[in-house]
Write a protein that binds this DNA or RNA. Sequence first.
DNA 1: CTACGATGTTAGATATACCTAACAAAATGT
DNA 2: ACATTTTGTTAGGTATATCTAACATCGTAG
Lengths: 218, 218
Amino acid sequence: MISLTEENYLKALFNLANHAGEVNVNELSKQLSIKMPTVTSMMKKLAEKKLVHYESYKPLRLTEKGKKEAGLVIRKHRLTEMFLVDKMGFGWEEVHDIAEQVEHVRSVVFFDKIDELLGFPKIDPHGAPIPDKNGKFAWIAYDKLSDCHAGETVRVSAVIHTSSEFLKFLNNREIRLGTKIKIKSVESFDGSMVVSYDNRSADTLSHTVCERLLVEKE
Amino acid sequence: MISLTEENYLKALFNLANHAGEVNVNELSKQLSIKMPTVTSMMKKLAEKKLVHYESYKPLRLTEKGKKEAGLVIRKHRLTEMFLVDKMGFGWEEVHDIAEQVEHVRSVVFFDKIDELLGFPKIDPHGAPIPDKNGKFAWIAYDKLSDCHAGETVRVSAVIHTSSEFLKFLNNREIRLGTKIKIKSVESFDGSMVVSYDNRSADTLSHTVCERLLVEKE
DNA sequence: CTACGATGTTAGATATACCTAACAAAATGT
DNA sequence: ACATTTTGTTAGGTATATCTAACATCGTAG
């Protein structure tokens, strides 16, 4: 049995390990707003449960079992977010905090039903992939808008949604998943981009914004 | 701030106090499957928080504040049950355990949205009243079927749903909220009733069943 | 290459929510 | 009315999850 607290550690480990595969105690501590000694002792506990590989002073790594369990928590989180948006009418900027709580519900049928009612979605409202029932992710490689060039036309496929402020900003600009963006020019000194989309012929997006928009080239 | 555990104690206190207004430590202990000493110490804690009136060796009583908080938890529980049945397609026998978990979600907008999507329901799928946003109950006085007499025609308005087995039994007999029952005779020696309803011309219901069906006379 | 800052661990304390064992009070039955 | 059973409390212990303070190791900059 994995406690609610342990679920949160696994989820954070997975999210931080996204690219590198390894995580520091310090990073994890900051992510969870939990002091380092507490993190160290939890890592020892999770190591005993064969959920993480832990050795003193070495970076943390999820075991296969740990990845699976983390995937299942993230599955519950993302299915919940999708349900809140698609079936309950919440905005994509409102759902993270609610899903953070609902994800800890222990009922397989509950999430299976959500999955079914949604038609077995593959991505959440922010474009992030929903792991399958074994906790496995179908990774999709997107480009950051900030890595694209003038003249290219791209489609917004996912957003990095660390803050609801960013999502509200996108709401104001009427940028959503699927929005087709044409890059008119890139300012080399600050990385900001002049783009057009829908009926906005010239809008400027800062580098900070462009880094958080994940796109596919047409 | 009221913890998840405290919420469970308040809910149990309210449910047991339904009629009497007073509850024993022993009763509460059995209801929650928590040993008496633990209950005693929790009562002292809840008394400090002004949620219960507690004196050694005296029966337990919720304060007004305690009743309100208990009402709010029960509101969340019953709104969840209604949502699970009406909007997600679960059976009334499946929803208690799921609602037991979802009720602890701390998000006012989440439950407000559920309330709105359901059209501000006054009763849950078992006919129990849903408290208002101040935790206040609109009490409805029903009769037990077991207190009715031969010749009377009644309508099922609520069920006492301590076990999902009872609800499955009612499913098999096709008895639901709203079913109109005609009492043909009452066996005086065991209190069982011969009744007719829908297209069942003569069905026998044991006293145990009749005690758990709450009805309104036509 | 050593010293210092960043990172990580150990030790010991706290709060919550549970337990058992032992004792105390209340209720009950003959 | 007193002995017994039921109910309730006290005392002390455990597990989880957190903290601070002090110490240890690592990595790097001078």
